[in-house]
């Protein structure tokens, strides 16, 4: 079973761009199947979450995208998460890719994502619905 990431605070700052977003990175789905990161589909995330005993898919709608006050290389993306529309902001590098339902990888600066990671990417926009995760059976 996958080990769950730590609980969220309202703002999450990933330390750097993780290596698994580089084109060609091998990703293991919950059923054991291996896929390249650029070949992942929405169904892969949904089916993996269905198999997972800990995690389930939630939808996060992009409500606002603005430049970070700390660095021009960062952006703050505000999401409305799940049916309760909980507000979560994440501060990420502008090239950080999010997976948009039915669309694929998207970032605030897709040109930079493609340049740095070679990952095919579209522009993340307000209204896009991204894949996020939540824990199952939380009380």
């Amino acid at each position: 079973a996958p080990s769950a990431p730590p609980p969220p605070s309202n703002t999450v700052v990933p330390p750097s761009l993780p290596p698994y977003f580089i084109k060609g990175s091998i990703i293991q789905l919950a059923d054991g199947e291996l896929k390249r990161v650029e070949d992942l589909k929405t169904e892969d995330f949904i089916q993996s979450a269905e198999i997972s005993s800990e995690l389930k898919i939630d939808s996060s709608t992009v409500e606002r995208i603005e430049g970070s006050h700390t660095s021009p290389n960062f952006a703050v993306v505000q999401f409305s998460v799940g049916e309760h529309r909980a507000q979560v902001s994440v501060e990420v590098l502008v090239e950080y890719p999010f997976f948009v339902f039915g669309q694929g990888w998207s970032s605030c600066c897709p040109d930079r994502t493609t340049q740095l990671l070679e990952l095919p990417c579209t522009k993340l926009s307000v209204g896009d619905v991204c894949i996020s995760l939540t824990l199952k059976n939380l009380r």
Partner: peptide, 25 residues
């Protein structure tokens, strides 16, 4: 003999950058 270099394999859930907030109902 040269050992084959192992290719890192990443779990699918690591690609999602954050967990949604816990719902309390």
């Amino acid at each position: 003999n040269v050992e084959p270099r192992s290719v890192p394999v990443f779990p699918w859930h690591s690609l999602v950058p954050f967990l949604a907030p816990t719902q309390s109902d």
